[in-house]
Design a protein around this nucleic acid. Structure first.
Lengths: 342, 342
DNA sequence: TTGAAAGCGCTAACAT
DNA sequence: ATGTTAGCGCTTTCAA
């Protein structure tokens, strides 16, 4: 069926050892032999059997990525873009990407354990880090390579890439205050996500800097989806004294919030302002376009993957922790507050 | 490091063969030995080395999925949902999912070849089939297992799951005509995608049934993204005699079209109607919510994966070709036509 | 510059 | 019911 190293050896009349070495460009093989072997390999359409190669080398040249899927309508554009970023870079380095799906929770660690112990991957890429992240604790405890997109409190030494979303949110706060907002509502996911804690803190500090306190009752928690955003935003909007601006912790929630505002008969950007975070391509095409903070998801995927490959190859890392500078994208979902019955 | 079958053999004082057989529950091993071996394996945290196991068995228990990524902002919610569907089912059956990324084109086939020849996967899942699909021709020519989401003309015997989007589009046509539209524009991706040909044909036939011809000049081609939809829709809108309804061939394009209409000062659902296709979760949260045709992407991922696993295991397939019935989702992006300067 | 031989961890045919 | 042995395809000592 498939040609093996042995077939080539037979054809060129050399030993399999020589063929193997020729293929790997060892310098103790004569140039002529190398040429000969290469040509034969080419002709016969030889491709190394990965299983055998890797069994021998005790490595897998494979990166693991376990998608934290939530329910059957897992439709977050964030992940396809991030995945493309990883896959892209992995391919550049001849690495494979092994993707599994597992909802966050109990079973999750077992999925990681299983992949580690069955020798399936050389390292993991972790997304959406959590404050008390069992995945990272596990990998750390056994010294298994990984790189995270996102930080984890108390684990300042682990390799990660993250955007400085504290600062990103401060920019949002500054901008809203500058526009004249003083009563601001916030819709957020569970604070188990570190990115949520950073963004909240940035928002809090940013507002406090201008003498504004974000009140607990103005912060509502929902799912990290359009639906979650819609529901929580609707709650805020239907209050007798509704906020003049709603800060959503990601674009998907913001899209839900815009929808809620419109269903309530409000004109977004005039009657009420809405902001997001991520700058997914879609955020340009909402109505009105969404004011948000840019996060280069594809590039972060690239970086995370590149770092991980260096780590598993034992190469030095220039920077073990990367914190990217955010930038504010001003669009039309924000405007000066329209003050209602005050 | 990791415990191997040999370690267990030593511990329980049996041969490695016996251990292997005990672990696989062969019936020529005494119950006591089985018990003994299992307990030891448990205690020692034994997990089989996949590479070795698979090298021996000449199978990989792995499914290949090559993401057709377009450019660096590959942010299509379709793919994350589909991936979750596949991953989910694969995990149920103990299969791994090997994901690569490769833009459609020249190099694509080489990526497939490479994965086939290096023995990395048992079969492939193909998405977004094309009229002249080199991937499928290749896999078919070498008899390598695959299941496609989408049909290919002239390959009626290949295993696939698809939605009957001809009928889906006819439903859209019926509905628009029923609302009173007669001048309809269409924004479509390249007709190399089979789904596009089916949807176009459905639209054409649906309209013709009501005595309406879709004119060539009213069909514009763009990228399968919000941006593509925006640009092409804007062209249609700026014409002196603009259509009263724009049919987009997927939801992402429709979102772009809504945005274009709004930028042109039109009220969508009143001044102009817009329809999509897919019913991604987002389509509920556009403004106004999008009239579209539902496609159960997660379940299709499930089905495709299940079928592929049966094929690679040599199990019989109840249905080799599955054509799902579409359903129309009426929302507020469509309404009776508002007739301008006619 | 080349080849023989061992062995990665596992399974299975063949003994016993 | 259990063990011996061969071998999957490859890399890598070690010896020639």
């Amino acid at each position: 069926m498939t040609t093996s190293i042995r077939d080539i050896a037979e054809k060129v009349g050399k030993s399999i050892t020589t063929v193997s070495r020729a293929l790997h460009d060892y310098d103790d093989v004569s140039p002529e032999t190398k040429e000969l072997v290469r040509k034969a390999a080419q002709e016969m359409g030889y491709v190394a059997n990965r299983q055998a190669q890797l069994l021998r080398q005790k490595s897998t040249d494979t990166i693991g990525f376990i998608l934290p899927t939530f329910g059957p309508r897992f439709s977050d554009p964030f992940f396809s873009e991030f995945l493309a970023g990883i896959g892209n870079k992995a391919a550049d380095h001849g690495y494979d990407l092994l993707v599994s799906t597992c909802p966050p929770g109990e079973k999750e660690i077992r999925t990681y354990q299983y992949e580690v112990q069955s020798n399936r991957v050389d390292g993991f890429i972790i997304v959406r880090t959590r404050v008390d992240d069992a995945r990272i604790q596990y990998l750390n405890s056994i010294g298994f390579p990984f790189v995270a997109f996102g930080r984890v409190p108390g684990m300042d030494d682990m390799p990660y890439v993250d955007e400085n979303s504290d600062v990103g949110m401060q920019m949002i706060a500054d901008y809203l205050v500058e526009l004249g907002h003083t009563h601001i509502g916030c819709i957020a996911p569970s604070m188990e996500y570190t990115f949520a804690t950073h963004r909240m803190q940035g928002l809090r500090e940013g507002l406090r800097f201008h003498g504004i306190d974000l009140r607990e009752q103005d912060v509502l928690t929902g799912d990290l989806t359009e639906k979650g955003g819609y529901e929580r935003a609707m709650e805020l909007i239907q209050r007798p004294y509704r906020p003049t601006a709603i800060v959503a912790l990601n674009d998907l929630m913001a899209i839900g919030a815009i929808s809620a505002a419109q269903d309530a008969g409000l004109v977004v950007g005039k009657d009420i302002s809405v902001t997001g975070f991520d700058n997914i391509p879609l955020s340009t095409y909402t109505h009105p376009p969404l004011t948000t903070v840019h996060q280069p998801i594809f590039q972060i995927g690239n970086m995370v993957c590149e770092m991980l490959i260096k780590i598993v190859k034992g190469m030095p890392l220039e920077e073990k922790q990367v914190l990217l500078k955010p930038s504010l994208i001003k669009r039309q979902s924000t405007g000066a507050p329209f003050l209602v019955e005050k």
